[in-house]
Design a protein around this nucleic acid. Structure first.
Lengths: 98, 98
DNA sequence: CGCTTTAACTTTGTATTACAAAGTTTGCCC
DNA sequence: GGGCAAACTTTGTAATACAAAGTTAAAGCG
């Protein structure tokens, strides 16, 4: 049976799971791109990103180009935590097929 | 990208995800077996089971053998919902590997 | 220099809900 | 009846997702 205790609650939450999946798929995402992809309010999005940042999963880069632009990327720690999380998901999918 | 909107919140919650996975792995589970496998308080467990039952995902059978024994099983609807849920998990795992 | 616009962030409020702990019901066995 | 165990209900608390509105800062433009 899968080890459900290993499902990190911070990642498991639906919105943050979506964020983590997006961040894992590219080197970096701008705030605006995340927002339009996820269709969240900016307040909500920034809060989830802050949660992930506080856990050390997400790195934040602020730049001022034409407009201010904040970008987000997974840290090594975030990538590792996400990998562990995905490993449990795989176990669940396996168990569900059996 | 995975369709996160399709992640049924009732199933996605950690405890209920564990319950659904167990129920999917066998025809039927007694309350006691679920409880000892999941190490939840009985109040908490019964509440989650009721939630799943109200959604039509879980069938309940009460029998009095030696002791009273309540058993739980997935309904066809529950099995279908869980299958859809697992399908999204698969997409997430795939996306995470890419 | 104000004025507007946009990005990003903060604050506030609400509603949901997970969970534990304690209490209740029911029926068996002595 | 008394004790015990399964299953269930009630109650209380703490966490938190989310929206909406307000705030700050910087750029472009007249």
């Amino acid at each position: 049976m899968p080890d459900f205790d290993k499902l990190d609650r911070a990642i498991h939450e639906k919105s943050r799971l979506a964020i983590m999946t997006l961040l894992a798929s590219r080197v970096s995402w701008s705030f605006q791109d995340l927002k339009s992809e996820l269709k969240m309010s900016d307040g909500n999005l920034v809060t989830h990103l802050r949660t992930l940042h506080k856990l050390g999963f997400v790195a934040v880069t602020k730049a001022v180009l034409d407009r201010p632009q904040t970008s987000y990327a997974l840290t090594a720690k975030g990538r590792a935590a996400f990998k562990d999380y995905l490993h449990v998901l795989e176990q669940i999918v396996q168990a569900g097929k059996a």
